[in-house]
């Protein structure tokens, strides 16, 4: 019998995934700042503390480095911690434990240990929180062998990928765009997983491949709907995982459409778009390209406070429409 499917918000889907994981496995527990009675800065853990108690929903002091290290140590010794950063920006305070310890422990010890820690990072701009609470740092962590880095774009994927992350024996970093928390979508009850390392073709098309991540997936789909009226048929690939990246799905899509655009919120240079572009340039899909590759990414600035400026620093639907139109029509 198929599981009941309801409409849940992205935040509710994550909360449900954590509850399912904790019900299934007593080794799973939550750590983070104000995730208990407060419910988390974005109410993602919500009332889980009432159900699972303070022993399994642990409020940490404001100690990102130490807290991340405790999660790593617990994972190393048999537990399955899910560690919430209050904002993804605070990963900067914990990079030592993430990059030097969690990512490398298994390798440095010759395969004698695994570090099954899950870290959740509320990310992205659009909340008026300015430069230190709005960054998209996923590519930083995507550069580190030993980590897996995912960016679910829908409530369905947010639940399924979190459950896959908890089951994964290695450290998984989940970047959750804060503006997605209220987005709704169908989510089955109970346990299911969405595989890490597999992209998803969210819309099939013939004229152009848009590889998008996180909140940019929906923006690309909105742009595609407008472009369809103009006779431009866009394929939207939701990358979902940035390490390990699903090369084959992107290559196959570009071979079909002969045009590639990458859309992501993080700063444009040295980011995911560069990686996807290079991946295509190095692949058999290169010969299929009918036009130069286009990247739409964040501006080369910190995220500003003023709402108009803030919007202007990251790609918006009209930007995608214009760039896609120019790309397909050969306007450069």
């Amino acid at each position: 019998m198929d599981a009941m499917v309801r409409e849940l918000s992205y935040a509710q889907a994550i909360q449900e995934a954590m509850a399912v994981a904790m019900d299934m496995d007593e080794r799973v527990f939550l750590m983070g700042e104000d995730i208990g009675v407060y419910g988390g800065a974005f109410q993602v853990t919500g009332d889980l503390v009432d159900r699972f108690g303070t022993e399994r929903v642990i409020d940490t002091p404001i100690s990102e480095l130490g807290g991340a290290g405790v999660a790593v140590g617990a994972a190393l010794t048999g537990m399955r911690p899910i560690f919430e950063f209050q904002f993804s920006d605070f990963a900067t305070l914990a990079m030592e434990q993430i990059v030097n310890q969690a990512a490398k422990m298994r390798f440095m010890l010759g395969g004698e240990v695994s570090v099954p820690v899950v870290m959740r990072f509320p990310a992205g701009s659009g909340t008026g929180a300015a430069a230190q609470h709005s960054q998209s740092l996923e590519a930083w962590l995507g550069h580190v062998p030993g980590l897996k880095v995912i960016q679910p774009a829908t409530p369905y994927d947010a639940k399924g990928m979190l459950l896959a992350a908890v089951a994964d024996p290695d450290p998984v970093m989940i970047f959750e765009h804060k503006l997605l928390y209220k987005a709704k979508g169908p989510v089955p009850e109970g346990y299911y997983t969405v595989p890490i390392g597999k992209a998803d073709i969210r819309r099939e098309g013939r004229d152009l491949t848009i590889v998008a991540t996180s909140i940019m997936v929906q923006k690309a789909l909105d742009a595609a709907a407008t472009l369809e009226a103009e006779g431009i048929d866009v394929e939207v690939v939701d990358l979902r995982t940035i390490r390990p990246m699903d090369r084959q799905t992107v290559v196959d899509s570009v071979k079909k459409t002969s045009r590639l655009m990458c859309v992501y919120e993080a700063v444009k240079t040295l980011g995911i778009g560069a990686e996807v572009s290079a991946m295509i340039a190095e692949s058999e899909a290169f010969d299929y390209l009918d036009a130069p590759i286009v990247r739409l990414g964040g501006a080369e600035t910190p995220i500003p406070y003023n709402p108009e400026l803030e919007k202007a620093t990251v790609p918006q639907v009209p930007d995608i429409i214009t760039a896609a139109r120019d790309l397909v029509k050969g306007v450069r």
């Binding site: 022993e55 130490g66 807290g67 290290g69 140590g73 190393l76 010794t77 911690p81």
Partner: peptide
Amino acid sequence: PIAVGAALSSKMM
């Protein structure tokens, strides 16, 4: 901090 995490495992398990 890793030792503290291992001690947390000890307490929880």
